[in-house]
């Protein structure tokens, strides 16, 4: 089973990411993460099926998911290039604007050097493409504090240290 970093630990990933919906054989069994467009098309059927999460491409803001945030256990955000930073804002707005409490998962081409910032933007799961995810865990601790407010520490530095 593929590996996932979840809450700073390496675990087996029992979710299957469907980059595309298989045309012939239909949906596989088990927990699946489907594209946003497919979710919007097949919402009722997918809700009935259960065990479904949704992934967003980097040009899809999470706004259309607003009505479903109570029910979706996983929202994955794709990084087609690790330098495409739109997902950082999506993670943050999911948590801050929409109060989303489920799993926010990074998928795609992000690298371990981004784990610290991603986790500050509300991501708590990372389908990281690396041979040794255990080693990558060290990057969560690149810094022991932060100036700006984030999801992990909503109180900015100046309210904690500069008063």
């Amino acid at each position: 089973m593929p590996k996932l970093i979840k809450d700073r630990a390496v675990i087996d990933d029992d979710w299957q990411l469907l980059r595309e919906i298989p045309a012939e054989e239909g949906l596989p069994a088990g927990k699946i993460i489907v594209p946003l467009d497919y979710w919007l098309e097949q919402r009722d059927a997918l809700l009935a099926r259960g065990d479904v999460g949704v992934w967003l491409s980097s040009d899809q803001a999470p706004t259309p998911l607003a009505p479903d945030l109570e029910t979706l256990p996983v929202i994955a955000i794709d990084f087609p290039l690790f330098t495409d930073g739109r997902g950082f804002s999506y993670g943050r707005t999911l948590r801050e604007h929409h109060g989303y409490k489920g799993e926010v998962r990074a998928i795609g081409q992000f690298i371990r050097d981004q784990l610290f910032y991603l986790s500050r933007c509300g991501f708590d799961a990372f389908a990281i493409e690396t041979a040794d995810p255990e080693r990558a865990l060290a990057s969560f601790d690149d810094f022991s504090d932060a100036y700006s407010a984030g999801i992990d520490q909503p109180v900015p530095w100046f309210r904690r240290h500069n008063q």
């Binding site: 930073g85 950082f88 933007c121 932060a146 100036y147 700006s148 984030g150 900015p156 530095w157 100046f158």
Partner: peptide, 16 residues
């Protein structure tokens, strides 16, 4: 200085 602190390691805006 306030902007320096806020913008340094800003987690959301490092890959603009």
């Amino acid at each position: 200085e306030i902007i320096r602190q806020w913008s340094t390691f800003h987690p959301e805006f490092a890959f603009l």
